[in-house]
Simulated scan of single mutants.
Amino acid sequence: MESRATAVNPARIAELGDDAEVFLLDVRRERDYEAWHIDGAYNVPLYDQLLRKDYGGLEAALDEIPSNVPVYVVCVAGITSARAAAFLRDRGYDAASMVGGMRGWGRVHRSYDVEGADGVIQVVRPGTGCLSYLVYDDREAVVVDPSQYVQEYIDVARERELEIIGVIDTHAHADHVSGGRTLAAELAVPYFLHEADGGHLDWYVSVRDGDRIAVGDRFFEVVHTPGHTPGSTSLRFGGVLLSGDTLFIRSVGRPDLEDDDDAAVRQAAGQLFTSLREIADLPDETVVLPGHFSNETARPLVTTLGELRTTNELLVIDSEEAFVERVVESLGETPANYRRIKRVNWGLEPLSEETAQLELGPNNCAAT
């Protein structure tokens, strides 16, 4: 009899995409599934039963689970899903447990060359909606907005025979733990951040509007675009704009994560409007690479400023008052644990096994 795999790597699920003939079975509690799940996963909330090794609910749900395709079972950390997968295999299913559960899903990184953006590699975290970049020229590379899993960037650079010479954070992140300082310290290279977002950090290279950061024979131009945070920056690299959390595909960065007082939010939204007006002055053919995505499925995630003028309603609002009202009225749920994440990124709280898990969940950095 053919041996079947009992476990599947989260990265393999990311590779399969939406068209794969597999069935993703999420056995977590319904509220956890509704808050954050893999696109296309089907929820049968059996987590508490499976913890007790009670398989009655799973037995009753067999009619909901197809037997003619592989079944990949998902839970929190891979324990209850392994039990469910074993139960299903005993009944003839081709079932495997996703290694590490949703925690493992949050760690997946995939790299793509960006067509039309020479020298730019986009690193996608499908589980968190985060985008980061390796930008290179003449074998030198700078990493922009890295996740805490810094080995991912070291590995990509090694595969491409690139030397990482610097790390940039476009702002002090509130949705994920930055690997910027960790990566820079490990490689003994500069860590760049706008001074307005430095918090209590004791070492970084402060950048301001108009500064240039060399990469091989090319350079980044720092564009100060406050609003999402006081020190938010976008980075021009020739005809490419890495827009950080200032401008997304269908939205803009939310202005309430620095100070949620109504007056402060409105003031930050006004700054964001001004920043977007500056970006809007760039040529239509400017390639725009944001710091996050929501439910967009294109990989890599890339657009042009001309396209955004037709798809992003917030970018084309020409009244500051109307823009501020629209943004303030449409603010949704804030990123989970964002205050503690900012404390970690500001150097006020150490990175630990506990704080490393704070970022797991849906991305909510967009204003709408």
Rank of each mutant, 00 (worst) to 15 (best):
11 A>W: 03
12 R>H: 05
15 E>D: 13
21 E>W: 02
30 E>L: 02
33 Y>C: 11
33 Y>V: 08
34 E>T: 07
35 A>R: 12
40 G>N: 04
43 N>P: 05
47 Y>S: 06
48 D>H: 00
57 G>W: 02
57 G>M: 00
59 E>I: 01
60 A>C: 03
60 A>V: 02
62 L>E: 12
62 L>K: 11
62 L>I: 05
71 V>W: 03
75 C>E: 10
77 A>F: 00
78 G>N: 02
81 S>R: 06
82 A>M: 15
83 R>Q: 08
88 L>P: 01
89 R>C: 10
95 A>H: 06
102 M>T: 01
103 R>H: 03
104 G>K: 02
104 G>T: 02
113 D>V: 10
113 D>T: 09
114 V>F: 00
118 D>Y: 10
128 T>K: 06
129 G>I: 15
131 L>K: 06
132 S>H: 14
135 V>I: 11
136 Y>V: 06
138 D>R: 15
141 A>H: 12
143 V>K: 11
153 Y>C: 03
165 I>V: 15
167 V>G: 04
171 H>P: 05
176 H>K: 14
177 V>Q: 05
179 G>Y: 00
180 G>Y: 01
180 G>M: 05
181 R>T: 02
183 L>S: 01
186 E>L: 12
187 L>C: 07
192 F>D: 03
197 D>C: 04
200 H>P: 05
207 V>Q: 11
211 D>A: 04
211 D>G: 06
212 R>A: 15
215 V>W: 12
217 D>M: 06
217 D>Y: 08
219 F>D: 15
220 F>I: 09
220 F>Y: 14
221 E>F: 14
223 V>I: 09
226 P>Q: 13
229 T>K: 14
239 G>C: 00
239 G>S: 08
240 V>S: 15
241 L>F: 06
246 T>E: 05
250 R>H: 14
253 G>K: 08
260 D>A: 05
264 A>H: 01
266 R>C: 05
275 S>H: 04
276 L>M: 06
276 L>N: 03
277 R>T: 15
281 D>C: 02
283 P>I: 12
283 P>T: 10
285 E>N: 09
286 T>I: 00
287 V>R: 04
288 V>A: 05
291 G>K: 03
293 F>C: 06
293 F>H: 10
296 E>Q: 15
296 E>I: 10
299 R>E: 14
299 R>T: 07
304 T>S: 13
312 N>L: 11
318 D>I: 12
318 D>Q: 09
318 D>C: 07
320 E>M: 07
325 E>N: 13
326 R>I: 10
326 R>S: 09
330 S>Q: 13
334 T>E: 08
337 N>H: 05
338 Y>W: 07
339 R>M: 02
345 N>G: 10
345 N>M: 09
349 E>S: 11
351 L>G: 06
353 E>D: 13
362 P>T: 05
362 P>K: 07
